[in-house]
Nucleic acid binder design. Sequence first.
DNA 1: GTCTATAGAAAGATAGAC
DNA 2: GTCTATCTTTCTATAGAC
Lengths: 193, 193
Amino acid sequence: MSKDTKTALMDFAEHAARARGFDGFSYADMAEAVGMRKASVHYHFPTKADLSVALMDRYHTDLEHACTQINVNHETGAEQLKALIAVYRAALNHGKTLCLCVSFTASRESLPVEVTHKIGVFRTMLVNWIQVVFELGRQDGTVENVKSAPQEARATLALLEGAHLAARAEESLAVFDRATELLAARCQSFSKS
Amino acid sequence: MSKDTKTALMDFAEHAARARGFDGFSYADMAEAVGMRKASVHYHFPTKADLSVALMDRYHTDLEHACTQINVNHETGAEQLKALIAVYRAALNHGKTLCLCVSFTASRESLPVEVTHKIGVFRTMLVNWIQVVFELGRQDGTVENVKSAPQEARATLALLEGAHLAARAEESLAVFDRATELLAARCQSFSKS
DNA sequence: GTCTATAGAAAGATAGAC
DNA sequence: GTCTATCTTTCTATAGAC
């Protein structure tokens, strides 16, 4: 069951990176978490740089999949935007964890350039997706006051990530909700047009 | 000149914390930066926890002073808000450094609870100040479409910090500007009322 | 205040047996 | 795939001379 072991290692590493930063956990921690020895962890991920690449790849895939699911399950721009907010809200774990992208961005200097590049690709993917949501929201009239969709998309991602930080600073979901309240308020249940 | 040495150590430590995270630099780095030995650094800051407290205290004082200066130098809500955006923009160093509050929030688990608490106090101070700016901007008519000043304040701090992260992710001032464009666009040079 | 010297712990990583 | 054993480096921190 080597794949399960690898998955278990990545699950722990992702959670640890999001809770304590990429420098905040060690191979010893990973080994203890899954019940093996340090040297065995190196069998699965020779270096910590390898681990960081694997984590970022999986994160990109997961989020892209989550976005696709939102498109499938929600019709209007407003509903899709609210669903994205909900995804970030859930990722907070009540203020205990950041999203991996924020965590990795803060720990940038400890990561291989390959991951820095992947962060850029990930952000571009997400901004583009959000932009389409705003365009839809403007067309179907469910998102209020949409001016420039590209600008809205950039600002929205910054707001969501900033709200993550804010919530973590005070370890409180309420802080996240307060920071995103105005954005959520622009989402109408039914078209006004 | 012990005070100068202490200041030099703090200057380097703050820059390093903002560029590489609080776990991303060591006493050896500090010693080399100011031209002394590791043990001598411990004379000024016995533990790294002590150092983190000193950095956070100074940061709070500095930012509070910057806000006061904005109040002195800018009359309208819009001008004050634009000045705050400019402060955050300058702190980026072209995408190389985060503000200390964001850096410390990400490295939370490595810091003493005292600093965690000080981060909360700092954020409250800043949110309150931003709230007053929005109230002013609504009264003098220079900031467009102000709904709830407390909500605007929370969202603005989250947006500024998120824009910091975004800019750092791509090491680009332009990314910061794009993320804050919509906020800046709400600031009018002259009252519309 | 700054130095040399050193302790003790923990980090990332590798070699080789099983 | 996992183990024991070990290496090397780096980290925070302290003792004591100057």
